[in-house]
Design a protein around this nucleic acid. Structure first.
Lengths: 328, 328
DNA sequence: TTGTAGGCGTTATCAC
DNA sequence: GTGATAACGCCTACAA
C-alpha cells in the first residue's frame, strides 16, 4: 500500500547490484534516457529491481548534481485565507503533471517572515518562484511569475479584477443604488489597488480601509455605515471582508439586502452559506494556481511566457443585493 | 532588503577564497563547531566574507552529506479546509525556532495522491512526518507523529474531541433538547470515530453521514430533518459541516435557534459571521500544530516523546442554540 | 550496449 | 589552529 519509508534508504547502487548491472545503467534507465542505448532485457531487469526495492531517487543528490530539485516555491501572504488553499491545489495539480512539487511558504503578512521564507526556499535550490500578491525582489533577476500583481518585470497571471469590480458596480447601479461604499483592503498590493482604482473610475462612493480579515472589514464597514453619506450598498474587496460587512450590518440593525446590499469577491464556498447568500465575483482560484505554474514552467523551460495572462471572472448573483429601500 | 537570489550561487569555496582560508575552516566556523579550534581573527574574517558575499549553505549538499534537510513534512487531507492553514502556521512557527522548515503535502482526500505526496516527501529526505488525520504507513518504522488520531505506534497529539462532544451535548441537554441529531463526517478517521462514539455514549440521537464539505453536510442534514425522528438540535462534526446544516435549515424553512439548535466544532473565524453566530467547540489549531512539531522534534532528537498529548477544547456559546420550541 | 570516472557543495576525520 | 581529503547519491561524458 504505502511506499517504503525505509530505514536504510535504497540507492541506485542497491538497484544496480540487484539487477546485476552498473549504477550508471540504472540511472540511464530510470531517467528515461535509455532509448536505443540499453537493451529491453536490461531495462526490464532494472525496473523490476527498482520496484522490488521500492527505490526512489534521492532528491538531494539529484539536486546537487543537476542544480534542480524539480521544485517551485509558492509564497503567499497568509495561509489562513481559504482562497490560497485553492490556489495551492491548482498549482500542485499542474506541477504534478510535470513532475514538480510545490513548496508553500507563508509570509504571514509579515515582512520579516517573508524574507526568511524566501531565503529558505532559495537555499533549497528551488527552481522558480510563484509570488502571490507578494512583491518579488526588486532589481534581481529571479525566475518566477507573479500572481495577482501588475507586470513589473516578471510574467504575471492575474484575475480580471477590474472587470469584476465593474460588473459588481453596474449590477448595483442597475438596481438603483446611488451611493455605493467600498470596504477595501488596507494592504498596498496591486490586487487591491486595481480594485480601488476601478471602483473610483466607475464613480463609486466613500471608502474605508481595513485589514483583510473579518474583524478588519467589520470595523471599516462600521465607519462607513456611521459616516455622513447615505450608503445603500457596499462592495467588499473579498469575501472574507464581505463577511465582516455582514457583521457590521447586523450590529447596526440593518437587514441585507433590504437596508443594505453587499457584494464580495472570490466566491468562497462559504459565500453561499451566509444568510442571505452573498452576491460575489467568482474567481477560479485553482485555475489561477494552475495557470501560474504553467507560466513558470514555460519560463523555466526557456520559452518566453506571455508577459501577462488575465483570467476572466464572473459575477454570481445571489440574494445579498436588491433595490434600495424607497426614501433610503 | 531581499536576500540575494543569486545567478551564480555563492559556495563555501568562494567564502574561503575571499577570507584567505581553506574551505573546511569556513565550514567549521559557520556550523558553529569552531570553539577552541579556530582563532578569533580567522573566525571574524570568515564571517565577514560570508556576509559580504551573502553566502547561504546549499541545502541539497548539506542534506546529501548529513542525511538531513532539516525539514519535516506535514500531510493533510485537504488544504482547502481553513483549519489546516492554522495548523500549518502553528507548526511552521515552532519549526522555525529550531531551524526547521515544514513542507506541506496535500493528500487531496485521495489515496493515490496521498501516496504520491508521501513518496515525494520521502525522496526529499524529510526528517520526519506530521500525519494529520492520515494513517501513517502500517508496520513500518517511520519517524513521525500523528495528529488527531488514536495512538497506534506513533506518538499522538490530538484535541480532546470527546470532551468537546460531551460539552456540546450537555449544553443541548441542559437547554431541554431530547432528540439530538448528528451530522457526521463519512471519512473513516479517528477524529470522527471518536466524535461518533462519544455522541452515542452520551445518548445522542439519529446520525447521517456526509462528506466534509458544506454540500456534503447539507445533504446529510436534509436527510436528518426529513427523517422520522423529531430532531430539535444538531451537532455537526466540524464548523464547515455546521455551515451545511445552516443551509439545510434555511431550505426547510427552519429558524435557528428557534426551530433548530446547531453546534459545530473548530471555531473557525467564520463561525461568528453566520447568522445567528455559531455555538461551537473551540480548538486551538495553531497550538495543535506547534505541539505536534515539538513532539516530532523530541522524537528526532532521540528523546522519547510522550505517547499521547491531548489538548483541551472549550465550548463557546453563541446564538445558534436555545431551548426547543414547546410542542416541537 | 554497458561500464568507468569525475564532480556537484557539504561535513567530518585526520594529519600537519 | 588549520588544511587536505574522503565520502554522501546521483548524472553524464566518454571509454570499452
Amino acid at each position: 500500500l504505502y511506499p517504503a519509508i525505509a530505514e536504510h534508504r535504497v540507492t541506485s547502487v542497491d538497484v544496480a547490484r540487484r539487477a546485476g548491472v552498473s549504477q550508471s545503467t540504472v540511472s540511464l534507465v530510470l531517467s528515461g534516457k535509455s532509448r536505443g542505448r540499453v537493451s529491453a532485457r536490461t531495462e526490464a531487469a532494472v525496473r523490476a529491481a527498482a520496484s522490488d526495492l521500492g527505490y526512489a531517487a534521492n532528491v538531494a543528490a539529484r539536486a546537487l548534481r543537476t542544480g534542480s530539485a524539480r521544485t517551485v516555491g509558492l509564497i503567499v501572504p497568509d495561509v489562513t485565507n481559504p482562497f490560497f488553499g485553492r490556489v495551492l491545489r491548482g498549482a500542485q495539480q499542474a506541477a504534478w503533471e510535470e513532475g514538480y512539487a510545490v513548496l508553500l511558504a507563508d509570509a504571514g503578512n509579515d515582512r520579516r517572515w517573508q524574507l526568511a521564507s524566501l531565503a529558505a526556499l532559495n537555499a533549497l535550490t528551488v527552481d522558480g518562484y510563484l509570488f502571490f500578491e507578494v512583491e518579488p525582489p526588486p532589481g534581481q533577476r529571479v525566475r518566477g511569475v507573479a500572481i495577482e500583481t501588475l507586470p513589473r518585470g516578471l510574467p504575471v497571471v492575474r484575475l480580471d479584477g477590474a472587470a469584476g469590480v465593474r460588473a459588481a458596480l453596474e449590477h448595483l447601479r442597475s438596481l438603483g443604488h446611488g451611493c455605493i461604499g467600498h470596504v477595501s483592503a488596507e494592504i498596498d498590493t496591486d490586487t487591491f489597488r486595481i480594485r480601488r482604482e476601478t471602483f473610483d473610475a466607475c464613480g463609486g462612493g466613500p471608502r474605508e480601509l481595513g485589514a483583510v480579515s473579518v474583524d478588519g472589514a467589520r470595523e471599516a464597514a462600521l465607519r462607513l455605515l456611521d459616516g455622513r453619506a447615505e450608503v445603500t450598498a457596499i462592495f467588499a474587496d473579498d469575501d472574507v471582508m464581505a463577511f465582516g460587512v455582514y457583521l457590521a450590518a447586523r450590529e447596526r440593525g440593518l437587514a441585507i439586502p433590504a437596508d443594505l446590499s453587499v457584494v464580495g469577491f472570490d466566491d468562497l464556498d462559504l459565500a453561499r452559506v451566509l444568510d442571505p447568500p452573498l452576491t460575489t465575483v467568482a474567481a477560479d482560484a485553482e485555475g489561477l494556481g494552475a495557470a501560474a505554474f504553467r507560466a513558470l514552467f514555460a519560463v523555466m523551460s526557456g520559452a518566453d511566457a506571455e508577459p501577462e495572462r488575465v483570467l476572466p471572472v464572473s459575477l454570481v448573483l445571489r440574494e445579498s443585493t436588491a433595490a434600495p429601500a424607497a426614501g433610503g
